[in-house]
Amino acid sequence: MKGRLNGARFFMPKVYKIPQSVLVVIYTPALDVLLIKRADAADFWQSVTGSKDTLDETFEQTAVREVLEETGIECAPGTPLAAHLRDWRLENVYDIYPRWRHRYEPGVTRNTEHLFGLQVPAATPVRLSPREHTSYLWLPYLEAAAACFSPSNAEACLMLPRMAAAKASI
């Protein structure tokens, strides 16, 4: 990446994405799932996703940050929704789509994705980051699974009834 400072040219080192990310399924008590449409890929509907910013950022910190950045929903410790963010204690390891490999260090082809669920009230407002997403919708979990472009996201939607029931029994 090139830049200028006081007329002098300099090169900034490229910052690569860390191949450790979160997938956060946001859902209502009726098991309606929030899907958001990617700005950089037509018809790619997904749950909240995002990579760690630093290696020492925990998956929970990443989940809280990404939910806020992508939807405007606050679930950080000390907020009303904090107790509703659940670590599903599941991970997917998958091949990074070729169209997005340039975001990672050369040779990195696989990502580890950690799963979370976040139950929110049915009327929770959503405020998208227009740089990342263009629209959103709420769908019953089976319809949400069918609409997801990512197989791991679709699988997470299908697991929702079991994961939500496990949360309720804790």
Results as ranks from 00 to 15, higher is better:
1 M>P: 12
3 G>L: 09
4 R>W: 04
7 G>M: 07
7 G>Q: 09
8 A>M: 11
8 A>D: 08
10 F>Q: 01
10 F>H: 12
11 F>R: 12
12 M>A: 15
13 P>V: 06
13 P>T: 03
14 K>Y: 03
15 V>T: 12
15 V>D: 07
16 Y>T: 05
16 Y>L: 09
18 I>G: 06
19 P>H: 09
19 P>V: 07
19 P>S: 09
20 Q>C: 08
20 Q>S: 09
23 L>T: 15
23 L>V: 13
29 P>F: 07
29 P>T: 03
30 A>L: 08
30 A>H: 11
32 D>F: 03
32 D>Q: 14
33 V>K: 15
34 L>S: 05
36 I>A: 03
38 R>P: 05
39 A>L: 00
40 D>Q: 04
41 A>H: 12
42 A>F: 06
43 D>P: 00
44 F>I: 01
45 W>Y: 15
45 W>N: 10
47 S>G: 09
47 S>Q: 13
50 G>T: 14
52 K>L: 15
53 D>W: 04
53 D>K: 15
54 T>E: 10
54 T>D: 10
54 T>I: 01
57 E>A: 07
59 F>S: 14
59 F>M: 14
60 E>L: 04
64 V>G: 05
65 R>Y: 06
66 E>D: 08
68 L>P: 00
68 L>A: 11
69 E>Y: 02
71 T>S: 08
72 G>K: 12
72 G>F: 01
73 I>V: 15
76 A>P: 02
76 A>M: 02
78 G>N: 04
81 L>F: 11
81 L>P: 09
84 H>Q: 12
85 L>Y: 08
86 R>M: 09
86 R>W: 15
86 R>N: 03
87 D>N: 15
90 L>H: 14
91 E>Y: 04
91 E>K: 06
92 N>D: 14
92 N>K: 05
93 V>H: 11
94 Y>F: 05
95 D>K: 09
95 D>L: 09
96 I>L: 14
98 P>K: 07
98 P>E: 13
99 R>L: 01
99 R>H: 04
100 W>G: 00
100 W>Q: 12
102 H>V: 10
104 Y>M: 05
106 P>C: 00
107 G>Q: 03
108 V>M: 01
108 V>T: 13
108 V>F: 09
109 T>N: 04
110 R>D: 08
112 T>F: 00
112 T>M: 04
113 E>L: 07
114 H>L: 00
114 H>C: 01
115 L>S: 08
118 L>C: 09
119 Q>G: 00
120 V>S: 04
120 V>N: 02
121 P>M: 02
121 P>D: 07
122 A>M: 03
124 T>H: 04
126 V>S: 07
127 R>S: 12
130 P>I: 09
132 E>F: 12
136 Y>S: 10
138 W>L: 06
139 L>C: 05
139 L>T: 06
139 L>N: 11
139 L>V: 05
141 Y>V: 07
141 Y>I: 07
144 A>I: 10
145 A>Q: 13
146 A>K: 12
146 A>H: 04
147 A>W: 01
147 A>V: 00
148 C>N: 08
149 F>K: 10
152 S>R: 14
155 E>N: 09
155 E>F: 01
156 A>Q: 14
157 C>P: 04
158 L>I: 04
158 L>T: 08
161 P>R: 10
162 R>P: 01
165 A>H: 11
167 K>E: 13
169 S>T: 05
